[in-house]
Amino acid sequence: MNHARDARVPPTMHRLLRGEVLMLGGFVLAAAVTIALVMPPSIDPASAQWTQTSSGPLTAADRDLLIKVRQAGLWEMPVGQYAETRAESQRVKEVGQLIMKDHMKLDLITRQVAAKLGVALPDEPNPDQQRWMAQLASESGPAFDKDFANLLRAAHGKVFTVVAGVRAGTRNSEVRKFAQEGVNYVMRHMALLESTGLVDHSELPEAPTPSPAPPVALAGEKRRQA
């Protein structure tokens, strides 16, 4: 039945049908080429997170460390200055000055390392830090002393985990040296803030619960297993 119908189709019609099929195939090929040119190539997420430098691979965590240390200085330097005129406690005044001077040194190091590694740094604190600055700028006396000690101590505890984590795992020698400096500064500042006697340790976040330790076999069981 099909052969009979095909026989009745004029030869010119066959040629037209074949031309339409070839034209359709050309359109499909052209569309595929266009999509390939317009769509961006697929990027491996892992490789997109790091770049190679003369001091080793620079990861997203390395860049984040430089940014966070820079932002820490951008709010702790002015707040340390606030302590000179707003604090009632002489120890808070002293600690404010020491932290401000330390962050001036650390900020210079941060900018030098960032420039060497090609990391863009922010020029203002993050929104939380700006809020803390505004809070302390509106206080004086005992209220300032208490909030100064506790806000800065809590902030140092958070950044300490970032610095220590990068120090433990970075593959970049410049970042490794920088993180070591950062660990020393942060530990010193936590001790200074605690020396005011105003830090409420019950308000600090607890350390994460450790994973359960594997059971330890007793000496007699070890001998039997052997």
Rank of each mutant, 00 (worst) to 15 (best):
V163N: 08
G56M: 03
S42K: 14
F148Q: 12
L192S: 10
S173H: 13
K158C: 12
A154W: 00
G169K: 08
A36V: 01
A155G: 03
A137D: 08
A48C: 08
T59M: 11
K158P: 00
V216K: 11
H3L: 13
G96S: 11
L198V: 03
E84S: 09
D107F: 05
Q97G: 05
M100S: 06
P41L: 10
M100A: 13
K68H: 06
S140M: 01
L151G: 15
A4I: 07
G197D: 01
Y185A: 07
D102T: 06
L16Y: 12
L17S: 15
R223E: 03
F160V: 14
G118F: 01
P212C: 09
G141C: 08
T34N: 11
P208T: 07
V199N: 02
A168H: 09
Y82E: 06
P127E: 15
L65K: 15
L17W: 12
L16S: 15
T170G: 00
A60F: 12
P45V: 08
A60H: 11
N126G: 11
G165L: 11
R63E: 15
G26E: 04
K222E: 14
Y185I: 09
L66S: 06
K146A: 00
A134R: 15
S89V: 09
V113E: 03
V166G: 06
L198F: 09
E174A: 08
N150G: 15
L108Y: 14
T170K: 06
L192Q: 05
D6K: 15
S173W: 11
D147K: 11
P215S: 10
R188I: 03
G19N: 15
P214V: 07
L121C: 14
Q52W: 04
P45H: 12
E139Q: 13
V33W: 07
V69I: 05
H156L: 06
T209Y: 00
L198T: 04
A134W: 14
S54P: 02
F148A: 06
M190K: 02
R15T: 12
D107R: 03
K177M: 09
S202V: 05
R171P: 00
L65H: 14
T51Y: 02
V186E: 05
T12P: 04
D128F: 05
G141E: 02
D62A: 10
D200E: 13
R171T: 06
S140W: 02
T170P: 01
A115G: 14
V119C: 08
D145W: 13
A83F: 08
R167N: 01
S211K: 11
T59K: 11
V175M: 05
R5T: 10
A154C: 04
T196M: 01
G182P: 07
V28K: 12
E94W: 15
G157V: 02
W75L: 02
L193Y: 07
M104V: 02
R86I: 10
T12H: 05
N150S: 15
Y185F: 05
A32D: 04
S202W: 01
V175Y: 03
Q130E: 11
V119R: 02
G220R: 03
R111A: 05
G25N: 02
H3G: 10
R86T: 13
L16F: 15
A217G: 09
L106C: 02
L24D: 09
A31P: 02
H103I: 08
L66G: 00
Q97D: 13
S42M: 06
E84M: 07
A179R: 03
L65R: 14
K116W: 10
Q135K: 02
A4K: 13
R188Y: 00
L108Q: 14
I43V: 11
M13K: 09
